[in-house]
């Protein structure tokens, strides 16, 4: 039971952080290797606002999301958009994103050092639940993730901008032909994808130590979730994230903990071999 709870917690974090990775992958046709470092960036901004500026964690959460979105918009304007205009190849974009990942991570190390940090919040006792101990922070993570997913669903299915985001990820050429302002919608895709990644990053900091490489190590499970869910399918990615989180944690019942991350790799490889379009179907 404890493992199931832990799995759901990490699974929700993987789910909400991976959505942006999936949407950008499908819409712009490249894998953003810096995505995980945006997750870490958000956790550090929240840490700074909370521990250094003394803000309440809820306000720090919002500050972190905003800061990450601003950084994301900046990157789109200075890097990704000019690169698309030059018809940069997919490989070029991927290599740029790896470079960006390194810059981001080392900036975090430069400012805050490489050691692990924690938010300045009171430690509260966990409570018993069917023989498992649940920390209040874990409940907070699951509830927040649930709210974010619901908000995302409303946005994608009810608003014009949300529908156009899905349209772009389906068929960007047809979106252009229909007169949709593609560049503006791409900007929104970044805003929402990175906003969710940032929220996930701050929440991740609640249940794990904040380290500069926390996002980088989350990248592999995120990829696994994206591929499991079908690239560009946000709902599939959410389900994929939960599955990966659960399988990672449950594996520790039979395997040493160090193999946790290998589990997502194995799951991803199996899916690629058996059903390359993802178990939830790519981009439906």
């Amino acid at each position: 039971m404890q493992l199931v709870i832990n799995g759901l917690v990490i699974g929700s974090i993987i789910a909400i952080t991976a959505i942006g990775l999936s949407m950008i992958y499908k819409t712009l046709n490249f894998v953003n290797f810096a995505h995980g470092d945006f997750v870490a960036f958000a956790a550090y901004i929240a840490l700074f606002a909370n521990a250094s500026l003394g803000m309440h964690l809820a306000s720090a959460f919002l500050v972190a999301i905003l800061a990450t979105i601003v950084l994301g918009i900046f990157m789109e304007k200075v890097v990704w958009h000019p690169m698309r205009r030059k018809n940069a190849s997919r490989t070029t974009l991927i290599i740029i994103s790896i470079g960006l990942a390194l810059v981001l991570r080392n900036t975090l190390i430069f400012i805050w050092g490489g050691s692990t940090r924690n938010y300045n919040i009171p430690v509260r006792r966990g409570f018993e639940f069917f023989g498992a101990t649940i920390a209040p922070n874990q409940v907070l993570v699951i509830i927040s993730a649930f709210i974010l997913v619901f908000a995302l669903h409303c946005l994608l299915s009810r608003t014009k901008i949300g529908k156009s985001i899905r349209a772009l990820s389906d068929n960007i050429d047809l979106a252009r032909i229909s007169g949709i302002d593609v560049d503006r919608v791409i900007l929104w895709t970044w805003v929402i994808g990175l906003g969710l990644a940032a929220a996930g990053g701050v929440l991740y900091g609640l249940v794990t130590a904040i380290r500069p490489d926390m996002g980088w190590y989350l990248l592999l499970p995120m990829f696994a979730a994206v591929i499991l869910g079908g690239i560009g399918n946000p709902y599939g990615t959410i389900a994929g994230g939960i599955v990966i989180g659960l399988s990672q944690e449950l594996s520790t019942a039979i395997l040493p903990t160090e193999y946790k991350f290998a589990v997502s790799f194995v799951v991803m490889t199996l899916v690629l071999l058996l059903k390359p379009e993802g178990i939830f179907g790519g981009a439906k």
């Binding site: 389906d170 047809l174 439906k284």
Partner: peptide
């Protein structure tokens, strides 16, 4: 109306 992919499949 293009020849192929003339619709948004997930919409």
């Amino acid at each position: 109306v293009p020849q192929e992919k003339e619709f948004f499949p997930s919409l």
